[in-house]
Each structure stands twice: as structure tokens, then as C-alpha cells.
Design a protein around this nucleic acid. Structure first.
Lengths: 215, 215
DNA sequence: CGACGTATACTCGTAAACGAGTATTCGTGA
DNA sequence: TCACGAATACTCGTTTACGAGTATACGTCG
């Protein structure tokens, strides 16, 4: 039940959330976001920022609150959030918290085309993945500990969650690797053979080809 | 180290992976993908499909292999994969398997703006999330057990992984809910108060502002 | 004091994503 | 047998995302 938003990108959410604090101009939004480390999870693209701000204004979620000029710098338009904007921010937050996402996960896509590579190579690749994951986990854990010194828990939940997910990912990858490396993964032989011939085993081909259009 | 692909959308990956089996025309690609249940994780948008196929052809990853006409149906262009296309598919698979993604997770975005809602509401929303997650998990588990009857493990890994991730998500959500409902979450009072006043506690404001917005 | 690098503040054009619409044909039941 | 709905096979126009480019001002190092 993901609602259609007037402006749908997550950058728009970020913009709303900073303008909700106080009016500012577009460039400042980017700076604030950047200083909050938000650019880590959602890279701020300049082109998108201005498009998004314009669209938010066009749909009445932001409104121009005059323009100011500092020194001889180019003039800049200051935006403030509208009541509608606040409502949208709250509603969107509600949705993000309550609806589990069915995002297209890239790794899942990878798994789904994995059979195209031989099992030995897959094993090596997954080992690389696991290493990278462990590095990431270590780095994130460190960053989290640094932050929990100053910031209240409420503001680091995001990182805590990210860390938990990576750990789960690492655990799953490790388990799969054990099966592959230990040779206990089922039908390894067939998988390997399938590369020499380029043909799927008969029973699989049958099923893959359209077994279940279960209507 | 995510490489820039000539055609970057995951739909392109899916297209390459089906055309790698045998030449086909665009509409058929969609049907095969649909029959494989791929439309669950990645909804196939018609507009995108034709754009993507054209772009793949433009970049030499697919090539036209004539056109056929069945009955009086509109003529359709049949595409086959090129050597370059196969190479791209393999390389892309390698990347997807070995590089952990740093995808923008929507729930993380939600957590990062969560402070804008009062803790009671957040608790209710997370409870809704947990319920939904549990329903999803039950459904996926059932589907998986049905499939493992016929399909070899290699072809259901994707679902296994998805299931594992949802379970991890549910576990994390449950733990957070316990803290919120049990009142052990730190500084709950301040969080609640902050809604009456609309102002952040002093120390948080200072840190959140990062001191970096030099004015 | 002036040249140079960096921060500020955008604009614009390209390219991708998308959804609604169009047109034909096949199968099926009344 | 023929009307009607589902499936086939796209096209087209609108939005949205993005990145490279532009232009000015401020600080600073020699």
C-alpha cells in the first residue's frame, strides 16, 4: 500500500525534514544534509536537488519566503515549509515506519542470475562479499560507538538498524559459503556440468520454462 | 566500486538473463520474466522494457535477429544476445555477488525522520510494521516450502535470502518495540516534550546542527 | 596586492523511467 | 456465429534524475 506521493524521491523527504526546522535556501539544505552525514545514505545530486525543491514548491509543500542576498553573492531564494508540507512529512514518515518495503534488492537480483557462473567462481565472489561486509560492519560499529558518546539513541537508531541488517547479511552469506566450500550444497555436480554444456538439467528446464503460471 | 553500466537498471539485467537462453522478442521477455515470478521483486513497466531493450541494442549488448510474424499479429522484432552482452551479464553478476550494496533503504530514511512524531505514535506504527512483516514471512515461508518440492536449491536461494532478511528485520523491530513499550528507551520524556514545544533539547540541537553551518 | 584555489549557488541539456493509450487478434461462451 | 474480454505487441508524451558546466565571491599565501 505505498501511496503515490506528489514528489516521491527520498531526497524530497530529506528536504522537507530540514526545512521543517527553519526556512532556508536550496544550497543551504544541501549543506545541512551534508553536515548531518545524510549524504552517506543518500548521495545528494545537484540536479535532483533543484528539481525536487521546485516540484515541492509547485505542489504547495514548500513556498517561497522571499529571497536574500549576502554580500555580492548571487541572489538565492529562501523556502519555508507549508502546513501541507508538514502534513506530508508526517504522513510519509508514518508510511515509511509502518509499511515493510519490498524494495528491489540488488543482491537478490544477483542470486537470481548466479547460476550463470560456475560454483567455484561464485564461492570466490561470495568470499569477497563477506570480507567487504565485515569491513563495513567494523567501520559502522566504530562510527556508532563514537556517536553514542554525544548523540542520544533516538538519533542513531538508523545506524543501529543498518548495522543489524549487515550482520544478518553476513551471517547468511557465511552459512551459504560453508555449504559451498564444504561441498554439502545440493547438486553441485550438475551445476558445474551445466557450464560445459550450456544446458540446464531436464527437470529444471521444464520447471524454469513456465511451470507455474499458477492461475 | 559500483561500475557504471551502459544500461544500468536491474530490468536490463533481467532482460539479458532471459535472452541469454534463447533469442526472443520484447513482449516474450516480459512473459518469461513474469512466468518466473520475477515480476514480484521487480515490477515490469512496459515503458521501461522497450526503452531498456532499445538501449541494450544500441550499446551492442543485444542485436536484432530478424523479425517474425505470427498469424496476422503485429510484426515483432526478435533480439539475440551478443558476445558483449554475455560478457556484461557475467561481469554484472560478479559485481552483484561480490559488492555489498549500499542501497538507500527506505526504512532507514523513516527512522531518520522518526523523531518528528511522538513516541506513542511511533510505537503503534512499528507494531503495524511488525505485524505486516510476520504476515510476509509466513507467506514467503510457505511459498518457499512449496517450491523446494520441485526446484533445486540453487533456484530458490533468492527467496531464502529474502526470508532471512525479513526475519532479521522483524527481530530488530521487535527488540526496539520492547524498549519503547517497556519504557526503557532512553530519554523518552524529552522526546515527548519536544513535540509540545517544537524545540530540540539544547545539547541535541547543538550536535545536530553540527556547528558546520557557518553563518 | 594580486593570483589562485575553494565555497557558493545555481542552470541547462540529456537521458532514463514511467504510465496511459492504441490497435490487433485469439478464444470462448451464449 | 458473433460479441466480448483477455492477451499480444507495442508507441508516445510527460516526469524525473542526473551531471557537467557556469559564474561569482571569499579567503589566503606569497
Amino acid at each position: 500500500m505505498v501511496k503515490r506521493r506528489k514528489v516521491g524521491s527520498l531526497l524530497a523527504l530529506a528536504v522537507l525534514s530540514v526545512v521543517a526546522q527553519r526556512p532556508m535556501h536550496a544550497y543551504e539544505m544541501a549543506s545541512v544534509l551534508r553536515s548531518r552525514g545524510k549524504d552517506q545514505d543518500m548521495a545528494i545530486k545537484w540536479g535532483s536537488l533543484y528539481t525536487v525543491v521546485h516540484n515541492l514548491a509547485r505542489h504547495g509543500l514548500l513556498r517561497e519566503a522571499g529571497s536574500d542576498r549576502q554580500g555580492g553573492r548571487p541572489e538565492r531564494t529562501v523556502y519555508e515549509i507549508t502546513e501541507e508540507g508538514r502534513a506530508e512529512l508526517a504522513d510519509w514518515t508514518r508510511e515509511l515506519l509502518s509499511d515493510p518495503e519490498e524494495a528491489p534488492r540488488r543482491f537478490e537480483a544477483g542470486l537470481s542470475v548466479m547460476a550463470g557462473l560456475p560454483p567455484e567462481e561464485v564461492t570466490a565472489l561470495l568470499r569477497r562479499r563477506l570480507d567487504a561486509l565485515q569491513d563495513l560492519i567494523a567501520a559502522q560499529r566504530e562510527a556508532l560507538e563514537r556517536d553514542t558518546g554525544g548523540l542520544p539513541r533516538l538519533f542513531v537508531l538508523e545506524s543501529e538498524y543498518g548495522l543489524a541488517m549487515r550482520e544478518a547479511e553476513a551471517a547468511w552469506t557465511r552459512a551459504l559459503l560453508d555449504e559451498l566450500a564444504g561441498g554439502t550444497f545440493p547438486r553441485l555436480e550438475e551445476w558445474r556440468a551445466f557450464h560445459g554444456t550450456g544446458r540446464l538439467p531436464a527437470d529444471v528446464a521444464e520447471l524454469a520454462e513456465g511451470g507455474r503460471v499458477t492461475d
